[in-house]
Amino acid sequence: MASEAHGAEEGGLVFHPMDQFIVKPLFGDGPIAWYTPTNVTLWMGLAVLAIIALLVLSTSKRAIVPSRGQSIAELAYGFVYKMVEDVAGKDGVKYFPYIMTLFMFIVCANFLGLIPMSFTTTSHIAVTVVMAMAVFLTVTILGFYLHGASFLKLFWISSAPLALRPILALIEVISYFVRPVSHSIRLAGNMMAGHAVIKVFAAFAAITAIAPLSVLAITAIYALEVLVSFIQAYVFAILTCVYLKDALHPHH
């Protein structure tokens, strides 16, 4: 029976597109406890180092006329700062460091995940759910803390006709609680799907006849994934800003 499995491999087409997402311990082969250093640890650590290199090391000269690295750091800062200010308003600016943290982590993890043989931490539901739930809980608690019970007016659309309001309120409540689900699955799903598709095409490359086409397809998908990596980080951050705006200004 084992030889049968072996035979399948010799057939040329071996699909293991999801193997890249397996969480493994870095040292040894034991069970994974909550503290075990795993490939998750490694790639998250690399994301931290990338952020330090990008935002700290490149700005160490504090040049008035910036170098390339410093330019990127300033662009990232300005990009997220402007996004927070535009979407969440002036009083949302004090939450800028939190959103910058999320954005920088996601964008660096996404790009690091594009390195061949790497591990994409943001493709895991566990990771994105923690971030999405953190955003959801923070925003909800903040809303009640700032506005008390009047935060519930977020669900009571006073501009709608009175007869429609209960129905709209129901829809609003459902959509509010669906937020963390869509928020987390959007990111993880996008990252996982793209990487899995690349792996599938890579498996096809074993067949000589379609190998060139496969390589071409991998290249195309890779380019798309570069775009998706940035866009998903942007979407995650801007949705966080939108939710934050709801907490700061719940009245429509």
């Binding site: 969480v23 994974i32 795993t38 998750v40 650590g45 982590f105 990771v127 923690v130 996982m192």
Partner: peptide, 19 residues
């Protein structure tokens, strides 16, 4: 592997540390 719940505490812990 995303639905392998045994790795969830590990990922969550390291994510929190990272963030």
């Amino acid at each position: 592997p995303q639905l392998d719940f045994s790795s969830f505490p590990n990922q969550m812990f390291w994510l929190v540390v990272t963030l």
